Simulated scan of single mutants.
Amino acid sequence: MRRCIQNVTLLVTCGLASMAGAQMPVGLMAVDTREPVTDTAVPAAVFYPALASGEHAGSVMAGPYRVEATSGAAPAPGRHPLLVLSHGNGGTRYGHHDLAVALARQGYVVVAPEHAGNHHGDQSGFGTDRVLLGRAWQASRALDAVLSDDRLGPHVDAARIGAVGFSAGGYTTLLLAGAVPDFSRFDRFCEAHPGTPELCDPPPAGGMHTLSNPPPTADRRVRAAFVMAPLALVFDSAGVSAMHAPVFLLTAEHDEVLMPSANGDHLRSLLPDLAGSREIAGAGHFVFLAPCPPPLVDALPHLCVDPHGIDREAEHARIAADALAFFDRYLPAEG
């Protein structure tokens, strides 16, 4: 079993060393589930350690991305830890495929739901509690779908479950870990910072409160939470007081979408006992998305082009090392 100490520099070093060793082939499969409150369909991609199939690892096209995985490959024997990976506002289940593949190569099963009402093809729930709470319910159902899958479920260790998320997905991960949002903080933020893109301009069209007596969003199965540039302005000290899982926080120095003082830095101040924390110097918000293929660079430069001096591929190697070392520490195998 790999072990790394909590110091951030050594944590990353340990993760990089682990990733440099033998790596497993990766399989890719789809699971479908339904969000329990609104009965909305939620498709998900699952990346998992697979049996070797020939000399070379396979790859498949998933939207604009080439994913380094073999579709439908047989799962590797053994019982593996399980992570749920939550994309950001308007994202996709493949938007962090490189991180999912990197973790699957090291023995993790990673399920990435495409959040209903808040993905690239459907923003109908943007700004509503149907999404802002439903994301967590959808993530929990994605975990259920993997655990109950006839083919993959027997290869998952249900005692070792974690969560990963970016932006609104980071917020989702915090919900799973027990954080409770205060949506009135949105109003106060927008009064102080009117015109903030995505949060305050344009304002949500659906109305924040659409559900009556919504169930809790915490998932006690989630034992570790890795968050990247999270939406965190909706949390206060009371809202994080019941969190049950350790947190690793990654932020970008020049986050142009989620103001650091109100989000990443704010969360850091609320969680003085973070398991780990790192800021990517000089980077903007979207550095956490998978490196873009050329068609996406041309079509969506604001998502794909980083500030001068930022090497997204190199940063993603460090992010994967951070995540691997963190989860190896907090989701250890027995023995």
Rank of each mutant, 00 (worst) to 15 (best):
L132P: 02
A290S: 15
V26K: 13
A50N: 13
L83Y: 03
M19T: 04
G88N: 01
P113D: 09
H87G: 01
D182Q: 14
L103V: 06
P81F: 03
P197A: 07
G15L: 08
A314V: 06
A136R: 05
A76D: 04
L211E: 06
R329A: 12
R312T: 14
S277R: 00
T92Y: 02
V8R: 14
N89V: 01
V146L: 09
C14N: 10
R3T: 13
V26A: 13
L270C: 11
T196N: 08
A104V: 10
P295R: 02
G15Y: 06
M259R: 13
G58T: 14
A102W: 10
L143C: 10
A225V: 07
D144M: 01
P81C: 01
A74C: 01
Y94V: 11
G195L: 13
V131A: 05
F326E: 02
E191M: 11
A252H: 11
V46G: 11
L176W: 08
A205N: 01
S148Q: 14
A74M: 11
R105Q: 15
G282Y: 08
N118F: 00
D219I: 05
L267Q: 04
S18T: 12
G117K: 07
H266Y: 12
G282E: 09
A50V: 12
G90V: 00
P43Q: 06
I280E: 09
F186H: 14
A69E: 06
D157G: 10
D149M: 09
A50W: 12
V8C: 04
F47Q: 05
V67R: 12
R160C: 03
Y171F: 15
D298P: 01
V180T: 15
A323G: 02
D182H: 14
L300Y: 11
A142V: 06
P272W: 10
L303R: 09
A30C: 08
A104T: 10
A69R: 06
P77D: 14
P291E: 03
D306P: 05
G107P: 03
G309D: 12
E55G: 15
D129V: 03
T173W: 12
G54Q: 14
A45Q: 13
R135Y: 00
L83T: 05
H119W: 13
V297E: 08
P36L: 06
G88M: 00
D236K: 04
H80Y: 04
T38F: 03
A112S: 15
C200A: 08
F47V: 06
L249A: 08
R2D: 10
T217W: 04
A168I: 06
V101P: 11
C190N: 06
V287I: 12
P81S: 01
L199I: 15
N89G: 00
V110G: 11
S86W: 00
I161N: 02
D298H: 01
